[in-house]
Every structure is written in C-alpha cells, then in structure tokens.
Design a protein around this nucleic acid. Structure first.
Length: 600
RNA sequence: GGGGUCGUAGUUCAGUUUGGUUAGAACGCCGGCCUGUCACGCCGGAGGUCGCGAGUUCGAGUCUCGUCGGCCCCGCCA
C-alpha cells in the first residue's frame, strides 16, 4: 500500500465530504469506459463508491485505469466531488458524490472471476461453493454474514443481561445419547478408543446445572453424521441454554425475550409476545403437524361424530373400526377439474392414504364426488362444520386418527404452496407443548424416546411409565415459526430414580446406563437442582430473519449435498503414517476411481 | 440403502422428443470507437473432447449400458 492509508470505507462518503481528499481501498466491480471518461464501481463490505478517471486530469493514470480488471484490489487517492446535475444515483447511499482519482495503486490483480459478480447471481451452487471466497464477497452474502453476527451478538447481550453465563463445553466428548450417528475421533494416546464429536452439549449443560451455574448458554456447534438435506448440514449451530429452578413459563419468557431481541437487532422488526401455545395433540388434530404453519387457516375438520351412520361405506366402516373421518375445506377450489383433484389424490396416496374423497358445496347441497351418499342431515352438518360455501371444495380422508391427521396436514401445506395462501411478512411464533415421550418402533419392536430420554414426564404420567408408555406425555416444548421448528427443549429429569425408569422403557439396562451415562446419574446423586432448557437453531433463525429459503447461505462454508466441502476438498484421505500411528486400517482401501475424481 | 432430476463455450442456458452440413444465444473475456455512465452504448474477435467410458449405427450432443459429479425426495436425522 506504500504510503497510502485508507481514510474511508466505500459506503460512507456523502455530500458533507465534498472537497476533501480521501483514500479508498476496495475491489473493482464494474468498469464503464466511455472513452474520454471512465467509471469504476469500487466495492467493499460497507458499500460502493463511484470513482472517476479522466485523461484530462492525468493521461498516465487514465491509461492504467483502462487495464483494471474485475476484482482487482486497488487503492485510490482523490478528491470527493459532487456529481454533476442530473447524474446523481438515488439508489446509492453514496450516489451524490464520486471520487476523482489523483493516485491509483493496484494492490493486487485478480484472475477473471469464474462467474460475473452481479445480482441476481447466475452461478450454480457447485461453482459458488468451489469459489466461496468470491461468492461471499457479494453484497448479498455480506448482508447474511452481518445478520448472523447481529443475531449472535443480540443473543449474547440479551442472555448475559438476564443472568446467563457463557460456558464452553468439550468438542472431544463421550459418545452422546441421542439418536443420530456420531462423528468419531480416534485417540492416538489411547489406541483403540475414540472420542465422539457432540450432537449437542446436552449432558454437559445438565451437569453444569448440578454444579450450580444456575443459567448457562453457549452458541454451540452440533455435529451429526447423517445424510444431508437442503436444510440439514453435518454441523449446525444452536443457541444452547439451560436454567435451574424453572418451569416451562420461565423458559418461555426467556426465549420470547431472546427472539424479540434477535429480530429487533438483526432485522429491525418488532415481534409480539407472549407467543400462543398449542398442545401437541391439538396441533395434530387441527393442523396435522407438530410444527403448524398458523399463518393461514384451512384447519382440519373432524367429521367422525357426524358420519357414523352414513351410507358411504368407506367412511362408516372406518368409523366402526375406531378410525376417523376428517376433511379440509379448500376454499375457492370448487372450480377444480377432475385432473386437478386427481393430482392431489395421487399425492395423498403417496403419503399413505387409501384415497382422497371429495365433493363440492353448491347452494344448499353437496354436488359431485361422494356428496350423493350423504343424507340431508349429514350434508347440512358437514357443510356447517367445515364452513363450506358455494365455490369451495371439500377433501376427505378416512383412516386411523394419526394417519388421517398426517395426510391432511401434508395436504394442507401442499395447498398453501399451490394456492399461495400465506400473507407477506407474517411472523407466527407458536409454542407446541406436551409431546408424547415415547414412540413405538415397529422395526425394532421397542419403545424409543421421541425427543431424548432426559425429559421429565408430566407428573400425572409418571406412573404410566411401566404400564402404558405410549400415553406418557413429557414436559417437552418446541418453538415454531411459520411452520418451521426453530427451537426445542424440555424440563429435564434431575432424579436418578425417574431417570432409570425412563431408561428402562427404552430398553436400557442399568448396566448399560451405568456404562454410558454413569457420570450423569452420579451427578444426580449429589444435589441436582430441578432444571430445564431450550436450544434454538441459529442457522434456521438467521434464515428466517433474512428471508432466505435455505440454511445453506447462512453458513459461510457449508458442505455440499454429499457432505463434501467443495472449496477445500474435505473429507480427504488420511496419510498411511497417520493411520499407522492411530492403529487404524480401513477394511476396504479406497478404489482408484474415487482417488482420482477429476474426470468430471 | 432406495428413488427423481440435471451435466453442452469462462458462466447461465437453448439444441436431445424425431440421430444427418460448420453445435447456437446471452453475459463475461480480448481488440477498436465513444466525455456523464451506473446492467453504459456501438462495431469486430477469440473461445467447445457436448462430464467420462463403452456400445448400436454409414453417421451420436441426440439412442443403449456403465460410471463420476451437482441438486432434490424417502429412509435416517434436533
């Protein structure tokens, strides 16, 4: 840089600076060479300033400016000038001024970028990830990075202000008790033994409560060795928190305050608290989902009590067999063709429905489809219950209660997307509570923890642990925003006896328990306080705060769909000497093909 | 583990259904002209192993098989 020293960023010059000499440093984005006049858009993280070169001012500098390439890094000294009448760019914060360059320093040249740095970007995800350093240089990505920083900063400020301590827990950990596969790190010193990378700091934070830390948080990396999805990365970040001597209401209060702070600081948006609450049972019955999108209505309508005697055999026999009949009122879809209805039936069948019955309300009747099977009384009752009016379309599913709810719930979301039912700008936060503790796994023929096994059962359910696990509700809660689960937590078990009973339900013997979680049970024996917590997912929160539709770009260096980092090429092979030292030998050596995948 | 879809110039794509001359467009890049642009404009130019391999055919970007890679879904997964 020589004797040049930056005086301003590219985003801050205004009319006030006219007449001053400044030094800007940044990246050359677009050049507009008009022959006797040359403009360069000079970018940095803070914005863009137009710099001007004229042969009349200095022919030598102008000649060099003509050879500036895209993404060259330059320093430019010059005078801030007001733009001439009629050439002000009102779209730009710096649009009233420009810098006339008296000294130009090329700090570094750049290869021609593999994609044009413009919005909207025309580049595949693959290319963007390979050249992530360029991708991140775009203003759009800079904004996401900044939003994430603001969300994290708001989190620290808010939680610290509410008595939380930020505490780091180990990355090299004991195998975690949750369902996913662990990433494993072999120990060199203890040949044959491994650490696991934590899926969450769950056990550590509970032990911190036993240690009397009272209120803990950590912006924690969580790692899982499972297959990826669009919204799932092998490592994600949670705002992990835990509190002693609390009930659900205390946790909700803190979480609502935290969400308010994050949305205020990162998006400038005010959100309303307290958030509404729904039990799991109600969420499933009304929305067919444990993370309901309540930004639109079209709730699931239960018709079981109305149709027990109906002439339509499918419904009657389902109800006689203990099942349910429910419907969705697709408001305004009465004009749908047979083909359009059939397409939805195919979807429903893919999700496990036996069929998708339909009928169309007309004045005082139900016409088409199964409408003809309904008596006058049933027609009136169904119409009323569903709030059906002429021009609507009723879609029915008859099956076991759980299955009916799930299918209609998925159909409801599909209709949301097809019919564009969501009003812009809504933020519907919602607590879902009282989840069941256990689910029966058909394949293994055993009970499994729905969430995790450290959740306290609701007091009235504790005695069902041994007799009817399926009926046991946990002190579990999820925070849902616009149909996306953004946090999950529970009041935990803090007593050994209850913990051992819960473990027994999921088939963990006391020897198993001692070997895997003995340290936690031992801690419970030494004065564990009642405690509970929550873990909001930072990636998803940033996604929703910024209006992105994927968590991919809220993470600076994400993995590709197959878990590969396209920029640095991880995972890569370990050198034989490294494996030797660890005492590891792969059963099947990597084949030649995968070693040399430059063919594509 | 199963399924879908895509792979053509530096980039984003068209062309593949129905095999047939020299594989096109836009942006970018290079050269020329241009003193108020901000997606500058105008003129010209270079740039392709149609992912890779095998097969069918007189002839393959196009059809078949295999393979590699990207994205997406199910399984799995807080």
């Amino acid at each position: 840089m020589g004797d040049l020293h930056r005086t301003h960023t590219c985003g801050e010059l205004t009319k006030e600076d006219v007449g001053n000499e400044v030094v800007l440093m940044g990246w050359v984005r677009r050049r507009r060479n008009l022959g006797g006049l040359l403009f360069v858009d000079l970018f940095d993280r803070h914005g863009l300033t137009q710099v001007v070169f004229r042969p009349d001012d200095d022919p030598e500098i102008f000649a060099r400016a003509e050879h500036l390439g895209a993404e060259y890094v330059i320093g430019a000294r010059g005078e801030v000038m007001a733009r001439p009448e009629g050439t002000v760019n009102t779209d730009l914060p710096t649009g009233e001024v420009e810098v006339h360059v008296a000294e130009l320093r090329v700090l570094n040249a750049s290869e021609t970028p593999p994609f044009v740095m413009e919005e909207p970007l025309k580049a595949s995800d693959e290319l963007r990830l390979e050249y992530r350093f360029l991708d991140l240089r775009r203003p759009h990505m800079q904004r996401l990075i900044e939003a994430r920083h603001k969300a994290a900063l708001a989190t620290r400020k808010y939680l610290a202000g509410n008595g939380f301590l930020e505490i780091e827990t180990p990355i090299l950990a004991k195998k975690t008790p949750e369902g996913a596969r662990d990433f494993i790190v072999p120990s060199r010193v203890h040949r044959g033994k491994v650490y696991a990378l934590p899926q969450s700091p769950q056990l550590y934070k509970q032990i911190l409560m036993v240690s009397g830390c009272d209120r803990y948080f950590q912006i924690a990396r969580c790692l899982r060795d499972e297959d990826l999805r669009a919204d799932r990365q092998p490592e994600h970040t949670q705002i992990d928190m835990e509190m002693s001597f609390v009930t659900e209401d205390d946790v909700f209060g803190v979480a609502e305050g935290l969400m308010t702070a994050i949305w205020r600081e990162a998006a400038g948006v005010t959100i309303e608290t307290p958030f509404p609450r729904l039990t799991y049972r109600e969420a499933m019955d009304r929305f067919g989902s444990d993370k309901p999108d309540t930004r639109f209505g079209m709730e699931i309508v239960d018709l079981t009590d109305l149709l027990g005697e109906t002439e339509f055999n499918v419904f009657r026999s389902t109800i006689e067999g203990g099942g349910t009949v429910k419907c969705l009122n697709a408001v305004g879809c009465g004009g749908w063709s047979r083909g359009e209805i059939d397409r939805r039936e195919a979807l429903a069948k893919k999700w496990g429905a036996k069929g998708l019955a339909w009928t169309k309300p007309v004045d005082g009747a139900l016409q088409g489809g199964i409408g003809k099977f309904f008596s006058e009384k049933e027609t009136a009752a169904v119409r009323e219950r569903a709030g059906a009016a002429a021009g609507d379309l009723l879609l029915f599913v008859a099956d076991a209660r759980k299955k009916t709810n799930e299918i209609l719930g998925r159909l409801r979301i599909a209709l949301r997307d097809d019919l564009d039912l969501v009003p812009e700008g809504r933020l519907n936060f919602l607590w879902v509570t009282d989840f069941p503790m256990f689910a029966w796994n058909e394949d293994s023929g055993s009970w499994e923890a729905e969430h995790h096994m450290f959740t306290m059962p609701r007091p009235e359910c504790i005695d069902l642990l041994e007799t009817d696990p399926g009926q046991v509700l946990g002190r579990l809660y999820d925070l849902v925003l616009n149909g996306v689960e953004i946090a999950s937590g529970s009041i935990r078990i803090h007593r050994r006896d209850i913990q051992e009973r819960v473990m027994a339900v999921v088939g963990i013997t006391s020897e198993d328990a001692e070997r895997r979680f003995g340290f936690l049970l031992k801690a419970f024996d030494y004065g564990a306080p009642p405690h509970g917590g929550l873990a909001p997912g930072l990636d998803r929160i940033v996604m929703l705060v910024t209006g992105e539709d994927s968590i991919r770009d809220t993470i600076v260096f994400p993995k590709s769909y197959r878990g590969i980092s396209l920029m640095d090429g991880s995972p890569s092979e370990a050198e034989p000497a490294v494996l030797d030292e660890l005492g590891i030998r792969f059963v099947e050596p990597p084949d030649e093909e995968s070693r040399d995948r430059d063919s594509g």
